[in-house]
Every structure is written in C-alpha cells, then in structure tokens.
Amino acid sequence: MNGVNKVKEIIEKNLFMSLATSDKEGNVWSCPMTFTYDDDYNFYFFSLLDSDHIQNIAENPFVSFSIYSTDQTVADMDGVQGRGVVGQVDDDELEKVHLLFFSRTMPNPEMRAKFAPPVCLFRSEDFPQMRFFKMSVTELYKKDTDIPIHRRKTIDINELRTAK
C-alpha cells in the first residue's frame, strides 16, 4: 500500500491519539485523546477547559500528535505523526462535530443515545466546562517502511484528502 492509504488505515483503525502541547514558556505536556476526523482530515476531540493541555493550547495553539496501534508487533510497527494547530469548535459547527465524534466512538445508536453527553453540555457555562476542539494538520508523517532504519517520511495532506 502506498503511504497515503496506510495512513488512512492507521487513522481509521485507531480511536486514540497522543497529543503533545506546550505553554508559551515551553513547558510540555502529553496526553492520550479520543479523536474523530472529517473528510478533510481535520481532527476533533473534546476536553475540559481547565485541563492542562487546553490551558497550554490557549497560550500556544501549535501541537504535535501521534497515532499508532499498540497491538502491532515490533516487526510490523508503523504509525502516524504530525503537527497541527488547534482551536475551539465554533458554536455553529457544534452539532455537526458532536454527531461526527460520537458516531465514531459510539457507533451503536442506542448506546450513543444513552451514554453520549448531550450537545448542550458542550456549550454549558457551568463548571466544569467541556468543549470540542479542532486540529488542522499542518505536517503529516508516517514511518518510512521502505528503508531499514527508523525514519519517517512526509505525507502530502492534500493527497490524503483526495485519495480514494
């Protein structure tokens, strides 16, 4: 498979990413994140506004991320990594993102109806405030499996978006 298809497969197969953030002073933080993505490979996740990673993002929206399966063998290991910029999802996109997220993470409609937090919670001003965030990818890489040493290769994001 070419790199783009493999990247698609990795993204599709995994529900979690590792998200790295830092504040303005360069203090770093990493956390696992459940995510979803849209047709343009913008990624979405939700978090509490007072969480460390969101406080970092408020100061510095530039992040890096990695997505990989933990059930693969060392011999076959592969993964996606990249950089992006994160911002809060606007109110007028909230319903669409909410559906996108929970359709993927809770595909069973009955489960979703029962357990998915309602949309209104993501606009509520009651503490603690939960919000959706969008990551627009600026750089994307995967392991270069064509060479024996551990290097990455760049993936063209536009190619990713247009590939079938």
Partner: peptide, 12 residues
C-alpha cells in the same frame, strides 16, 4: 459574565 472561548482554527 461568560466563559471565554479559545480561538478557533479559522480565527487563528
């Protein structure tokens, strides 16, 4: 008065 938003990607 409110809970301020964090800048959106479009805003950035």
């Amino acid at each position: 008065i409110n809970v301020p938003k964090i800048a959106s990607v479009e805003g950035l």
